[in-house]
Simulated scan of single mutants.
Amino acid sequence: MDFKKFLPWIIAIVVIIGIYSWVKGINNTAVTYEQNINESWGNVQTSYQRRNDLIGNLVNTVKGAADFEKSTLTAVIEARAKATAITIDPKNITPEQLTQFNQAQSGVSSSLSRLLVSVERYPELKANQNFLKLQDELASTENQILTARTRFNEAVKPYNTHVKTFPNSLFAGMFGFKEKPYFEAAVGAEKPVEVKF
């Protein structure tokens, strides 16, 4: 039997199997990284949902103070509604969508801060145990949000590195894998906070 006759076929088969395994590895690694991003995004949404649920309880507690500023409560309720109206699919997330989501959540944070500052003028509300507990839970939730956003960014980095590195970038585009945006600080966060008494 003459092996020289089959040698080109054997080499071709080995090369095809090698290329297939390499391309499959690029795809499967991208899929794994993308699943990590999806999980991280779910944790971000869960943290924001917890804050939204707490805001509802906080608003109801504050409504009990009859002479409390209604415009402040309305601003919180409207910001919360706007923030919950934005939904994002982490598979197809774009920088514009993430910016829009970030702005809506910043609006909630801003109106919530105004609410908590205005509470200082209501001693009976400041002494309310339900209010104090909700305030502590909100502070804890803000820390959870920060952690979830940080972990989302940590999940995006290896994915982006994988799909942007040559030659992976050639195949990633063919398989529909695109670069994902990072969470960034809210606009104006670089300015020092002005504290007024």
Rank of each mutant, 00 (worst) to 15 (best):
N128T: 05
F68S: 02
S110C: 10
R80C: 05
N130A: 12
E39T: 15
N92W: 01
F3S: 15
T61G: 08
S106H: 11
E124A: 14
N38R: 06
E137T: 04
D53Y: 02
E194T: 11
S21F: 15
Y122D: 03
N153E: 01
I10V: 12
T84Q: 08
G107Y: 10
L73G: 10
I26H: 13
Q45C: 05
F183A: 08
K63I: 07
R151G: 10
V15C: 10
A12H: 05
N160C: 01
T94E: 04
V59S: 13
I93W: 01
D89S: 03
I88W: 00
F3E: 15
T46L: 00
G25Y: 15
P8A: 06
A65E: 15
N102F: 08
L98Y: 12
N43A: 13
A185T: 14
K5M: 13
S106Q: 14
T99M: 07
I17K: 03
G176Q: 00
V108L: 04
Q103N: 14
N168Q: 08
G56S: 10
N92I: 07
A66I: 11
G107E: 09
R114I: 07
F197D: 09
A127Q: 13
A127M: 13
H162R: 05
N168T: 09
G42N: 01
L138V: 14
L98P: 05
V44Y: 00
N92S: 09
Q35V: 09
T94W: 06
L116V: 12
K4F: 10
A85S: 11
K191H: 06
K126G: 09
T99N: 07
K157W: 01
I11H: 10
G64K: 08
E78G: 09
R121A: 13
R50P: 01
